[in-house]
Structure formats: C-alpha cells, structure tokens
C-alpha cells in the first residue's frame, strides 16, 4: 500500500490577509484575529492524494505544524478523506523559518514511519518561500520535483510527472520515495461533504510536541532558524492621486483623456 504524507499548513485566510501586522517586539506575525484556513495549494496536494487513493490502495496521513488551533484544518482534511491527521504543535516550534519548518516536518514524517510519497503545496500563501518541500526532501534524503502540474502515471515504485517551467514543462520519472510540490493546475479540490464530516468525527488527531519528536530544542522554531528578521520599515508613498470625479460616464471620459495624454491610446 502506498503511504502518502500530505503537508498542510494553516494560514491566515488570504482574503483577509491585509489585517495581519508584524509584532514590533517579537518580529513575528500577529495573526490572531484572522481566521485560519488550509493553505490553498495544499488542498490541491491533498486532492492528488485522494485521487490516487481512489484508483488503488493508499493510506493518507495529513501532517501540519502549527499552533493548537491548526488542529481545525487537520480535522477538515480528515473530513475531506484523509486517513490520519498529525499536528506538530509545541511552543518550541514557534517562529520557525523555512529551514526549521522543513526540519520539524521531516522529523514528523520519520516518526510516522516510512513514507513513499510526501506531497506539499508549491508555496504557502503567508510564507511563500517555496522552500519547505525541497528542504524536507534533502533532510529525508529523497528526490524532489517542484511545481508538479500533472501526474502522468503512477505506481508504487515510481511516478511520472510534468512539472511547470516558466515557459513550458519538464517531464520526469521519479523513483519513490519522493517529495513533490504541486501547482493549482494539477486538479480541482473537492469540497466538504456531510458524510465526510460525520466520518471525520471518529478519526483522532495525533498531536506531537518536542519530546515526542525527540529532537533538541535548538534545532526547531526560532532557535533552529538560520534566518532572522532584524528590521521592519514602512514604505513611503511618492505619488499623489488625482481622482476622476463625476458620473460613471464622466469618470470614464476623463480617464480616456489621461490615457491619451500619456500615449496609451
């Protein structure tokens, strides 16, 4: 049976992201007031796993590192059809950069037992480094393909995928175990069903902290992060806006005039 681990991150709802501010003292993000959702691209990663499971034998574990309330998104993944949910949560994990995040997740994958496939989103909507998938791959000594947009063929030994390039794609064959990061072109994620929610009620979420992973505190969270934020600045605005005023027609006419003056029309 193919063992798939899907890494899902709880992110502040991107639709409300403007409300997030940086804490001037700790220099981490204050994300308290924004509701947490599944990172949009991670839904595509989960969907890929669910589709594989629909065509053969697979066991899907969802893995997330985050604050205790990230358990809600793990639960949501269970309701969508994942078999097992793991939340890596510990005060020591806080403030992690991509490197420390990848390390902690890799330790989670290892503790969970041998994985054949690890799926990630290409990027998270709040971190957006794109680093976590490839860095985990190195730490797990697995190959990685980023930006997978199509799974051409798959079996328990190897996957054949197409991965996006700026103007084109790479067609690759990858021996398992392997890490893949996916783009939104890969599939259309399913939505929650009532029966899924009922079934998920019976599924437990496993929560692991620092001691469960058995790793030193220096290697996780802020302490385990090679990069640190040192400074924050507001950006000055250098332009002054002139509004087009009047009725809709008048505004359009004025804008046409402006566009003609600058040579666009």
């Amino acid at each position: 049976m193919l063992k798939i681990v899907v890494c899902v991150k709880a992110v502040p709802d991107p639709k409300k992201a403007c409300d997030i501010k940086i804490d001037p003292k700790t220099k981490t993000l204050l994300r308290c007031d924004v509701p947490m959702v599944i990172n949009p691209l991670d839904k595509h990663a989960l969907e890929a796993a669910l589709q594989i499971k629909a065509t053969g034998e697979a066991y899907i574990t969802v893995l997330s590192m985050g604050p205790p309330n990230a358990g809600a998104i793990v639960k949501e993944c269970l309701a969508l059809g994942a078999d097992k949910g793991i939340l890596l949560s510990d005060a020591a994990f806080g403030g992690a950069d991509a490197f420390a995040t990848a390390y902690t997740l890799a330790m989670g994958v290892q503790k969970n037992g041998a994985a054949d496939v690890v799926l990630c989103g290409m990027a998270s909507s709040d971190g957006a480094t794109e680093w976590v998938g490839p860095e985990m791959a190195v730490m797990l000594d697995m190959p990685v393909v980023t930006m997978v947009r199509e799974i051409v063929a798959h079996n328990n030994e190897a996957w054949e995928v197409k991965a996006a390039l700026e103007n084109g794609y790479r067609h690759m064959k990858v021996r398992l175990p392997a890490v893949f990061t996916v783009t939104r072109d890969l599939n259309t994620p399913r939505t929650l069903s009532f029966s899924g929610i009922i079934k998920a009620r019976k599924k437990e979420i496993t929560q692991w902290g620092l001691d469960d992973l058995g790793v030193p505190a220096e290697k996780v969270g802020l302490k385990g992060s090679p990069t640190i934020v040192t400074e924050m600045r507001a950006v000055e605005n250098t332009r002054t806006v002139e509004f087009m005023e009047g009725t809709r027609e008048e505004k359009a006419e004025q804008l046409v005039q402006k566009l003609a003056e600058v040579g666009v029309l």
Partner: peptide, 13 residues
C-alpha cells in the same frame, strides 16, 4: 516586502 512595509532578514550565524 511584507505586510505593508519592508523587512530585513539576515543569516548571521
């Protein structure tokens, strides 16, 4: 750039 401004990141160690 981040959250309405800019942040500086270093990797000192």
């Amino acid at each position: 750039p981040a959250y309405g401004g800019e942040i500086t990141i270093v990797c000192p160690e």
